[in-house]
């Protein structure tokens, strides 16, 4: 999502000679980050990123890469050009996924082991608040106006709507088993929550005041694939709100969904155990992390087809792109 908001800002910032974009891939088991050139699709660099790096995001100005180093119980920070490590951020125990607000000031971090969402100030590097949520918080989404952070709890099976004004939960929506990811549309009018074990995506319409209403549920079906392997995890929606892409985990496919009618249009075969997704800033490509085949798949968004795969480190988990 961040890249959708970023593109304009980043383009404005870099007025010099055109630079090749980069994708940063966190390798959960390899404890590294692979840096992939998004024009040549070559791995340019790989560097140590802490123990069990999972969630990964970028500062709005594109200069800092934030990584949830789950087994180090902190967020590690790296310079996106030099890959030098910068001072870490406190995260609370076992950070898995997080979301950064469009201003870049606050990080909202899910602490899987402690039923908490930790709010960290990226400038002062202090914890601003801890919000108690359901059991095993995981997915984190933020509304485009930054007024709401949505956390999904994997064992409680709810989407918790946290107000960023007072850090309290205002709405709880029950969803299907093991919700993994929450994704708003760019205009903030719709929210998608994936449920890994339930095998569905819950679709909510969001009022002007941020209140959610469940309006539908997306299910998946692939001939020749056992229904229990269709496990929705990562999800991204195009900035025009027309297409939703859903990573289906051990089904090794990304579903292409009409984000308005909620009809599943196609399934794109990718690598094994596809986990998280990110668009390149120009939204020309969608990158998928494939945990069991140790690669990423590059999907051409307009063609809705996989065009190549790139070998990265061990057990790629998350991906973020930078202009």
């Amino acid at each position: 999502m961040k890249s959708l908001f970023l593109s304009a800002a980043v383009i404005a910032l870099f007025s010099g000679p055109a630079m090749a974009g980069k994708a940063f891939v966190s390798n959960e088991r390899g404890n590294t980050i692979s840096v992939v050139n998004t024009e040549t699709w070559e791995v340019e660099h790989e560097f140590f990123a802490g123990n069990r790096p999972r969630g990964i995001t970028v500062s709005p100005d594109g200069t800092k890469i934030y990584v949830c180093a789950s087994d180090d119980n902190l967020v590690r920070v790296f310079d996106s050009s030099t890959y030098e490590e910068l001072p870490s951020l406190p995260s609370g125990p076992d950070p898995e996924l997080f979301v950064i607000e469009p201003s870049g000031k606050r990080l909202y971090i899910a602490n899987e082991d402690d039923n908490l969402v930790t709010v960290t100030d990226t400038e002062t590097r202090t914890v601003l608040a801890e919000v108690p949520v359901g059991v095993e918080p995981e997915g984190m989404g933020i509304s485009p106006d930054a007024k709401w952070v949505v956390n999904t709890s994997e064992t409680t099976n709810m989407a918790h709507f946290i107000s960023t004004e007072d850090y309290t939960i205002k709405h709880n929506i029950l969803v299907d088993q093991r919700p993994r990811y929450a994704q708003y549309t760019a205009d903030g009018s719709r929210l998608f929550v994936t449920s890994e074990i339930g095998g569905t995506v819950t679709v909510m319409d969001i009022d002007a005041d941020g209140a959610p209403t469940v309006v539908g549920k997306i299910s998946f079906e692939v001939a020749g694939v056992q229904p229990e392997w269709l496990q929705p995890v990562g999800a991204k929606v195009t900035s025009d709100g027309t297409r939703l892409f859903v990573a289906l985990g051990p089904a090794n496919r990304v579903a292409v969904v009409d984000a308005q009618s909620l009809e599943v249009l196609d399934y794109i075969l990718v690598g094994q155990r596809v986990w998280q997704l990110d668009f390149t800033p120009d939204e020309k490509y969608l990158l998928t992390t494939n945990g069991n085949s140790n690669d990423i798949t590059v999907i051409d968004v307009a063609q809705e087809a996989a065009i190549r795969s790139v070998q990265v480190g061990q057990q790629p988990w998350g991906v973020v792109t930078v202009e």
Partner: peptide
């Protein structure tokens, strides 16, 4: 009814 039980499927 379905339930997640840390065994990879409902």
């Amino acid at each position: 009814f379905d339930l997640a039980a840390f065994k990879g499927q409902k």
